[in-house]
Structure formats: structure tokens, C-alpha cells
Design a protein around this nucleic acid. Sequence first.
DNA 1: TATTGTTATACTCTATAACTATA
DNA 2: TATAGTTATAGAGTATAACAATA
Lengths: 149, 149
Amino acid sequence: MEVRSAAVADEARVSEAWRLSRMIVSVAELSKLNFAENIAPFGLPVHLARTLLLLDEPAPMSELAEQLGCDRSWITSLADQLEERGLVTRVAGRDRRFKLIALTDSGTALRDQMTAAVARKSMVLQRLTDEERALLGPLLERLLKAPAR
Amino acid sequence: MEVRSAAVADEARVSEAWRLSRMIVSVAELSKLNFAENIAPFGLPVHLARTLLLLDEPAPMSELAEQLGCDRSWITSLADQLEERGLVTRVAGRDRRFKLIALTDSGTALRDQMTAAVARKSMVLQRLTDEERALLGPLLERLLKAPAR
DNA sequence: TATTGTTATACTCTATAACTATA
DNA sequence: TATAGTTATAGAGTATAACAATA
């Protein structure tokens, strides 16, 4: 009897967890759509916008590859595209093998505009209250950092 | 002075929202990785597994296209692949134009196994307590349903 | 004429492998 | 020999457009 009700409770817990998992993915998809809409006025494809928003400091290409979770060769292509638009330049690194990707003045200006626009129009800001956001933060941190209890 | 501090508070709110947005996307990415790992033992590529988990009732292909957010022609391809593996069949719909994708017995068995495995091993279940999940649900619902307050 | 699913084809994003230039 | 970036090529995943069958 106790075993039975424990199993039922577990079943409910598992199916609720599954529902939450699917919701997280949906939220992220919505969030990406949102991002795409918000940057559309700036005329950059999503992957270039994403890269631009990452470039606080001049960064070696291999480091960008790591941050974006992609191959170095793809970074070459991204850098080419951003360079064509005058948003970044390749500058020398501490070693003649390294090339750093650095924002140009217009790249910096565009990044600042985009960051502000994207943050102000984010779903999280538009749809949640201050209190709700305060609750959400720690939960997301747990999901990202927790060592799979 | 009041204006200044209001602006500062707003700035903080916006940048916190931006941090949360990025975390949501990271969580979703982790969650997808997790999903991929959990279904790997079943030997289905991710897109087929995702489709299988969607098939509770026999569904017309155009409805699947809508649910998965992709073109009807891609559903044809998915259905072909699932059919080759004996997991689904095309059955007649209420109109001779419609074809419904329905799970076979082995499709149903596989789906049940996968659903259970995926739910039990989900990050949400493994990394959050019951209380934390109870907090997370309503927040996600707000993000998905809220009419952009 | 409008709709469902199919086919053939093309495109986008990204990885792999081979290459170069340094170190 | 090992590492950073580049080039050329290939693949996965998906869309587009034209089409066939049915309504």
C-alpha cells in the first residue's frame, strides 16, 4: 500500500519533470524567435549578431570557437562576414600565429545598440514581474551549475 | 536625483533580464544535449525520436508539420524513415487526401520506453528538488502564455 | 479551385581534412 | 613536432517549387 502510493507519487513527479523539460525547450525557442525579431532591424543574420554580442574584448579565434561551441573553420567564415561589413578587424595577437577579432568603432556602436534593444525587448523582461525574475534566476543557476545531485 | 536612481534601477533590471535570457538558452541547449544522450541507447537519430514522442494519437501529416514547425515535405521524409524502421504506418484519414501517421506496436513500445527514460533522466528531475520544480512550473507557464504584459 | 501529401532539387549551416605559417 | 588560422569540400537537416490525387 505504501509502496503503491510511493510509486504513484514518483510517476507524477516524473511526468511533471517531463512537462517542465518540454516547456524549457519551448521557452528557449520562443526566446530565440524573439531575439531574431529584435535584431532584424539591424540587418544582421542571427549568427553574426550572436557573435558580435560576444565580443567584449578582442578574442583569439580559437577562443571564440570554444565559446560558440563550433569549429575554428566556421569562425574564419564568421570573421570574414563581419569584416566585410566593417564591424570587426583581425589584429595581431601575442604570437604571429594568433589573430584576435576586435570590434571596430562601428562594430562597437552596433553591438551597444543591439545589446540594449535585445535586453529591453526580451521576453523575460516583458512577461515577468521583478519578483518572478528574482525567483527564476536561482532556479536557472541550479540547472546550469548543479552537479547532477 | 530620483530620476537618476530610477534610471540606474532600470539599467540593472535590463541587464539582469539579459542575463536570464542567455541562461534560458543555455539551459535549453543543455537540455537538448541531455535528451540526445538519453535517447542514444535506443538507436534513433534525435529528429526521429522527437517525432515518435509526439505521436500519442494517429495524426495527419500536416498537423505534425505544424507541431514540429517544419514543412510538410520534411514530414514525408520523417515518416519514410520511421516506416522503414517499422515504428509507424500510414493509415487512411477521413478523406482520401489525408494520411495519418500511426504508431505500430513496436513503435508504441519504443515510445513508452523512451518517454520513461528521458523523463527519469531529465535535468529538471535530477538537478532540482520538488520545491524548486513547483516554483519553476508557473514561471515557465507565464513565459509561454503571457500576453506580453 | 483549394488542399494533402510527394518528389526533385536547392540552400543553409556547419564539420572534416588537408594545408600554411608560424612556434 | 605542435598549434592557429585558412581553404576546399562534404554532409545533415530542411525548405521551395512543381506535381498528383482528391475534394
